[in-house]
Structure formats: C-alpha cells, structure tokens
Computed example of a mutant assay.
Amino acid sequence: MPEVIVTVRSLVRRRREPVVVQAFRSTAAAVVSYVVALWLSSEPAPLTAPLTALLVVQVTLYTTLTTGIRRVNSVVAGVLVAIGFSALVGLTWWSLGLVILTSLVVGHLVRVDEFVPEVAISAMLVLGVTQVAATAWDRVLETLIGAVVGLLFNLFLAPPVWVAPASEAITSLAGRMRDLLVHIGDELDQHTPVEQAAARLHEARRLDNDIAHVDSALRQAEDSLRLNPRVKEALLFRLVLRTGLDTLEICAVVLRVCCRTLTDLATTRTDGPLFPEHVAQALRELFVHMGIALENFAVLITAQITASAQEAELRLAQELAAARISRDRAAHLLQEEARSRPETWQLYGALLTEADRVLDELGVEKRSERLVEELDRHSRTARARRPQLQRLWRGRAS
C-alpha cells in the first residue's frame, strides 16, 4: 500500500509531463468509447471499442490527421478478418497463423502502408474476444465508435507538446560533448598511449548514437508542434531546434576528427606527453571554452520555451570570444613548437582547423544564416505544394 501511495504522488507531481498526459488521454479515450459502446451496442462487454480507441489515439495531433484514416482502415480490416475467422473456424493454433497471414495480405491490399502489422495485431486481439458470428456487426460498430472517439479526442483535446524532452536531449548531448573536450584537455600534458587516445576516439564515435536518440526525440517534438492550437510560432520552434541539432551534429563530426588527429599524434609520441606544458595549457583553455560554448549553444536553441534566449546568446558570444583568444595563443605556440618538430606541423594545423570549424559553426551569425535559409526553404516548399492557390493569389494581385 505505501508503494502505491508513493507511485500516485509521483504521478501527481509529474502530471504536466507529456508521458503522463498521454497516458491519461489514452485512458480517458478508452473509457469514453466503452461507455458509448455500452449505450449503442447490444454486447454486454464491448471491449473492441476501447481497444480501437487505444490504437487510434496518437501521440500528436499532426500524426492523427495525417495517419488517422490509414490507422482506422487497418483496425477495421483486422476486426473484419477476425470476425470472419471466428465465424468459420474459431481460435486454434493453425487458425491463428492463418489469421496473421491473411491480415498481412489484406493490409497490403487496402494500402494502409506502415500500419500493415496493425491489421494482424487488431485481428489477433479481436479474435480473442470474438467467438460468436452473430456479434459481427456489433464488433464493427464498436470499432467505429472507438475510432471516432480516438479521433475526436485528438481534435478537441490537443495532445501534449514534446518540446521539453527534445530540449533535454539536446542539452544532454551538448553536455557529453563538453565532457569529452574536458577529458581531452586534461590529457594533453601527459603521456598518452595510443590505446588511451583511441578510447577517446571511440567515445567521440559514440556521439553518433546520442545524435540518433536526439533526432528521434526532435521528430516527435516537431510532430507535436504541427497543427497544435496551444503553440504559437510552431514553425519557428521546429526550425530553431532542427537547425540547432544540425549544428551540434557537425560539431560532433569535427570532434571525432579532432580525436583522430590526437590519436595520430599519440603514435608519434611514444615516450613523452603530447604537448609541452605551456602548449597543453593553451589548448586546454581552448577546449574548455569550446565545451562551455557548446553548452551555451544548446541553452540558446532550447531557450525559446524559457524566454531566456537573449541571456544565453550573450553568454555564448562571450565564450566564443574567449575561445578565439585562446585559439590564437595556442596557434602561436604550436607554430613555434612545429619549428622544432617539423614532422608534426600537419597535425598541428589540422587541430587548429578543427577548432576553427567548431567555433565557426557555433557563431551567432552562422546560426542566424542557417535559420533564415531554413525559413526560405520551408516557404518555397509550401508554395510548391499549393500552386493553384499561388496562381489565384497572383491573379487577384494583378
């Protein structure tokens, strides 16, 4: 009992989180569809209606409007297949296999696209509660009730906005990139075996998996912003987050190349540190400023929901300025070091070039330029999709 109370209190505290909101929406839609089905259907326990409502209620309003019809078709097709088999053979191991095969074929025939497996899923679930052929039309009615209730819930009770989870994922990614830069900087004045440098390279490569996770969260956030009446300037939110993630992805690639450069340098320094202490100190300061700039950049692109974008932009500009000062100092010291080690001048140059690329990508001007390009591209795409409206508008203007 105490554990249940703790769980309930936790849910109450998290009542505004998208996952909790979606859970309550799905539950409410299922209950409402069941009550309506009790009123309209002659079945004593019309479970097909809440089942269909759970399948139809989408995470976002945009996916409801774009895929709702196909999902309803897939559920109805699965229910009809299950009803037909329950009238003929009932539920056995071989009939179950035949139901699945038939449902997959029917799914392709009715062209429900990505919801083909859902035809089979719906058929199997309904087959378990449909054993009497006389109830066939009641099952169809229940399916339609559940589908309509699910669609109405998403139309009149807007689904949650998933911007906060996407923002947290972006901030977490920037934090891991900063940690990598700090770890690299701490090892510059030490003897670094090739294996240790290669471990940092693998750590940088693992950022690709983190980016894939953030991209998935961002796609969900973008869908939740589309056509959502609770969100103003949804297009700007989506483009700010998307272009910001593109920048972080470029920086992650550059960091991987930087780790590759340091690994190559480690192969030439088998008996000493990677850099002399004064050079390592300058590079360490550069990497620290770059890491803080990455975090501030993440705060900036996610600050649209906290109204602190101006402050974040100021902190980012300050860190970039400090990073460029450290970069110039490191470049001067590396130039002097290359005179005594001419075989390493290419690696030193590559290291500075990689730092320049990161600082350039994080620049406020670069971000504004990329955002304007995305807005223009989106406008051109929107005009191309509605050529008739554009011709009508030009005709009225003339």
Score class of each variant (00 low, 15 high):
223 D>Y: 14
59 V>R: 08
370 R>E: 12
303 A>D: 12
191 H>I: 07
234 A>M: 01
138 D>M: 03
378 H>K: 11
233 E>V: 03
92 T>G: 07
57 V>N: 04
185 G>Y: 01
324 R>K: 12
3 E>F: 11
389 L>T: 06
194 V>W: 05
337 E>D: 15
45 A>W: 09
37 A>G: 05
388 Q>I: 08
151 L>H: 02
234 A>I: 01
216 S>A: 15
189 D>Q: 06
179 D>E: 14
89 V>E: 06
113 D>L: 07
91 L>R: 05
168 E>T: 12
183 H>S: 10
20 V>T: 13
357 R>T: 11
193 P>D: 08
324 R>F: 06
377 R>K: 13
149 V>P: 00
260 R>K: 08
94 W>F: 13
395 G>N: 08
128 G>K: 04
202 H>F: 00
121 I>V: 15
280 A>M: 02
317 A>T: 13
62 Y>G: 03
172 S>P: 01
26 S>K: 07
396 R>F: 14
214 V>F: 05
141 L>W: 01
145 I>Y: 00
369 E>M: 10
125 L>G: 14
179 D>H: 03
36 V>T: 05
148 V>M: 01
190 Q>Y: 04
247 T>E: 02
267 T>E: 13
361 E>P: 04
54 L>D: 04
283 L>E: 05
160 P>I: 10
146 G>K: 02
315 R>A: 13
346 Q>T: 12
70 R>D: 12
59 V>C: 04
301 I>P: 07
35 V>S: 05
382 A>V: 11
124 M>T: 10
6 V>A: 15
137 W>K: 01
313 E>G: 14
225 L>M: 15
164 A>D: 10
309 A>V: 09
390 Q>C: 10
153 F>C: 00
376 D>S: 11
126 V>S: 00
363 G>E: 11
319 E>P: 03
209 N>I: 04
234 A>L: 02
255 L>P: 00
54 L>P: 04
384 A>G: 12
62 Y>E: 12
71 R>H: 02
393 W>H: 14
284 R>H: 14
16 R>W: 12
335 Q>V: 06
105 V>T: 10
215 D>P: 04
278 H>L: 09
236 L>D: 13
236 L>W: 11
360 D>F: 15
54 L>I: 10
151 L>G: 01
192 T>Y: 06
319 E>H: 12
226 R>V: 10
367 R>P: 00
253 V>E: 13
269 R>Q: 14
233 E>T: 04
237 F>C: 05
271 D>W: 09
244 G>T: 02
151 L>W: 02
